[in-house]
Design a protein around this nucleic acid. Structure first.
Lengths: 165, 165
DNA sequence: GTCTATAATACGATAGAC
DNA sequence: GTCTATCGTATTATAGAC
């Protein structure tokens, strides 16, 4: 793996462990096993490297969700697959964790990729749910007519099982 | 308000805004309107002041919860009052927010008051629920016999209303 | 491209005048 | 008790040798 790649990977790990404010260039360099000069050769500074790491996280996040949500199977199966894998993905790149960091929140350049990812995720989930909704109506189910909540629960409930409560 | 009090108040605000790792002595002093010397006269350093601020938060958290949970009224009314006030309290002292901070988590002295507060809160809530549980059984309701979840929901449901899913 | 040396600033803490 | 001056270290970044 190239030096630039190792710097991005180290930054991703440290953003997750120590957040943006708690991540020092020295720590990044030591973890990546490179000197000061290398980091500043590839990136203009800590914010620039952080941006690259955050964009990488956002890409990974989206491609992973895309895999789970756009496969075959019912809306339930696809959202189930997405939710079951959620935790493991978050280990490597918990975008939401950054929103606790004051410096990160204050920098629009840094949180734009995160915002865009969450907007994308919402649209993707809404799309899958709407697909299930349409199928439920086509199948003659009256659940979608009750209320949004009952409609979604009906779409998500595995066959033959009532939603909890 | 005395200098020592202002330092604690400033530290509480900054812990909430910037977390422990993002809070510098200089920022504390400026916010409190005191010089370097004053801070180090009253506290041995940043960790010591943070401990005082966190303990203060824990005390406020507990006394507030105690007010809401130990008043008159049904278990539902008391837990409702507690939950409704929860958000406002957290504005001034969100203990849970600190658990995202790496330096805070690494320091047992600092997170002990937080741990103790959450243990206390759990016990307090469990106590109120158990009280409601006993009353429900005494009143002849069979809800407590179904399952813990249904029992709790029955205790918490306002009269004449079924719990929301 | 990578390294070491170095600089400017901030952090966390201390000393000592008042 | 409070202030200013100062210190040692770490951070963030640059310069320049290789």
């Amino acid at each position: 793996m190239g030096t630039r790649e190792r710097l991005i990977t180290s930054m991703q790990a440290l953003l997750w462990e120590r957040e943006y404010v708690g991540t020092s260039p020295k720590a990044i360099q030591q973890r990546a096993g490179v000197g000061q000069g290398s980091m500043f050769h590839h990136f203009s500074g800590k914010p620039d490297l952080a941006l690259a790491a955050i964009q990488r996280c956002a890409e990974q996040r989206q491609s992973f969700a895309q895999m789970r949500l756009s496969g075959p199977g019912t809306a339930f199966a696809r959202i189930e697959a997405f939710l079951l894998q959620e935790r493991r993905v978050l280990q490597g790149c918990q975008l939401g964790r950054l929103t606790a960091d004051h410096e990160f929140v204050a920098n629009p350049d840094l949180h734009r990729p995160v915002d865009e990812t969450f907007v994308w995720l919402r649209q993707r989930l809404a799309g899958v749910l709407q697909g299930g909704y349409v199928l439920a109506k086509a199948a003659g189910s009256d659940a979608p007519y009750y209320s949004p909540v009952r409609g979604v629960l009906a779409i998500l409930a595995p066959q033959g099982k009532k939603p909890l409560h």
